[in-house]
Structure formats: structure tokens, C-alpha cells
């Protein structure tokens, strides 16, 4: 597989404080990658750097062989953290998805029949066909996330970046989103997502990048889910539990006991 994303000695700083330091990594075409790390580790900043939204202090990012600033609009799909969205904004599901179309240049304001077909085929694919005319605030968390994935898929991107796509979702919605992303990945799309959720999300991904301002580790789950690496990443004692069951071998991460809560359990 070709190297689709190449980051070479990337450093980013805000107000004189270095947020990303000397990140060198590559992601192959068609990979499904999770970026894990504690709050403030620079995960969102890294995604924004891949979108060309943040000036680099040093280093270089190339996507599909092109400098990140020369990448064609729409060839990278982006799903932001949903908490950045104003749910009271007067817009319907279909209008959100329409927003990805011809918004970088002068254009007629109304949508063409061809655009409507494209949008509704995406909505149907994501199980949102009957929600097109609904206001965005009327949807559940999982449905909202799927709307933004539909929005990101307009333009048929080769790369999909998602910032905490499962945050705040219940088990069923999280399961649906992860399966949807797995399906997209199987169709050849390269996917990078950030997550806080080690057990429910990261533990199921084929490749992980551990980021805490610098690159701590990267590799398949077996290589990265080690106590030494995760404890260094989170600067906290973490234990890996090997679980063997009907689903196969699973590696789970457990936090160290939190006194005094543990003591209370012991009494019970």
C-alpha cells in the first residue's frame, strides 16, 4: 500500500507554546487509524494540521503526494466534534449535507436535481433518507453524527478525518457509527479518528497512533496496547487485561484503583 499521509518533523505552537513537537509518521492508503492520547495532547490540532487549517512551525505534511494546502477541496472529508455545532441553527438535515457542495466559489444558490439525488443517495446509505426535511435538533446523537458523516462524504473523499466521533453516544449509536466507518474503510477509504475511548473504540481499531504532544508510539493494537506505552501516554498507571471469549481475544485497559472508592467496595 502507498503512503497516503506523510508527516515529516511537524511542529505546531499556539501563543509560543508548542502543542505538537517533531511528529514524523505516515499512514498508508486504506488504513483505519485511531489517534489516542489524553486531553490537550494535540489530537484535534493534528487533525486540523492535516486539513491545512493550522500553520506549521516546521515540517511538512503531504496528502496523496500533494502539499496539504494544494489538496483539492472535498477530497478530504471532515467530521468535527459535535459540540462545536450550534443545534439551534435554522437548517434541516438535507441543507447540512448540501453545504458541502459548491461552497468554495460563486454558484447559484438553489440546488440542482443532480445535487438532490447525490445528497439523498448518501442520506439513504446512512439510514437517514426519511429525515431529510427534519431540523437538525430533532435528531438523536447517533443520527446527528451520521448527518455530519454524510456531509463529509459529499465529493467522494479518499480520506475521512473524524474528531471524537463517538463522544456522548450510547452503546448502540457508537456500535452503528463504528460499523459504518468500518464499511467505508472496506470500500477503500482511509480513515483517521481521534478518540478518548480506549476500550470501546481504540481497542477495536487495526492501527493506533499514541500522541501526547510528541509521537509516543504507533502500530497495531498488540504493539501499542502495552502498560509501559499507555502509562507513559496518559501519565497514569494503567493495566492491560487480556480477555478471551466468544468474540475472540480482546485487550482491555483498566485504570488503577481510585482510593477511597475502592475501599468502599471492599466493605460491601
Amino acid at each position: 500500500m502507498e503512503r497516503y499521509i506523510q508527516c515529516l518533523q511537524v511542529s505546531v505552537s499556539f501563543s509560543g507554546k508548542e502543542v505538537l513537537k517533531d511528529i514524523t509518521l505516515s499512514v498508508k492508503s486504506g488504513q483505519f487509524v485511531g489517534i489516542v492520547g489524553p486531553s490537550g495532547a494535540g489530537k484535534t490540532t493534528f487533525l486540523r494540521s492535516l486539513l491545512g487549517l493550522i500553520p506549521l512551525n516546521q515540517g511538512m505534511i503531504r496528502i496523496g503526494g500533494k502539499d496539504v494546502h494544494d489538496v483539492f477541496p472535498g477530497s478530504i472529508g471532515y467530521v468535527p466534534q459535535l459540540e462545536t455545532v450550534d443545534w439551534n441553527f435554522p437548517t434541516t438535515v438535507e441543507q447540512i449535507v448540501f453545504m458541502g457542495i459548491r461552497s468554495t466559489r460563486m454558484s447559484i444558490p438553489w440546488t440542482t436535481e443532480e445535487e438532490k439525488q447525490e445528497v439523498y443517495s448518501l442520506l439513504k446509505m446512512l439510514g437517514l433518507g426519511k429525515f431529510g426535511k427534519r431540523h437538525i435538533s430533532e435528531l438523536s446523537g447517533g443520527q446527528r453524527q451520521r448527518v455530519f458523516i454524510a456531509r463529509a462524504l459529499v465529493g467522494k473523499p479518499k480520506l475521512l478525518l473524524l474528531d471524537e466521533p463517538t463522544i456522548g453516544l450510547d452503546v448502540k449509536a457508537r456500535h452503528d457509527i463504528m460499523h459504518l466507518l468500518a464499511d467505508l474503510n472496506r470500500s477503500g477509504m482511509t480513515i483517521l479518528l481521534t478518540t478518548h475511548d480506549l476500550n470501546s473504540v481504540a481497542a477495536h481499531l487495526p492501527w493506533l497512533i499514541c500522541l501526547n504532544q510528541t509521537l509516543i508510539a504507533q502500530g497495531p493494537l498488540d504493539m501499542v496496547f502495552k502498560e509501559r506505552i499507555l502509562s507513559k501516554l496518559y501519565d497514569a498507571p494503567l493495566t492491560i487485561i487480556q480477555h478471551t471469549g466468544v468474540l475472540g481475544d480482546l485487550k482491555l485497559v483498566a485504570e488503577a484503583s481510585h482510593y477511597p472508592f475502592t475501599a468502599r467496595f471492599e466493605k460491601v
Binding site: P80, F89, M99
Partner: peptide, 12 residues
């Protein structure tokens, strides 16, 4: 108007 961050990401 909807979201400046997403608009920037799509090179608006």
C-alpha cells in the same frame, strides 16, 4: 454562518 471551522476545513 453555520460553522466557520467546518467551512475552513472545506476550503471555503
Amino acid at each position: 454562518t453555520f460553522n466557520e471551522e467546518i467551512a475552513r476545513a472545506y476550503k471555503v
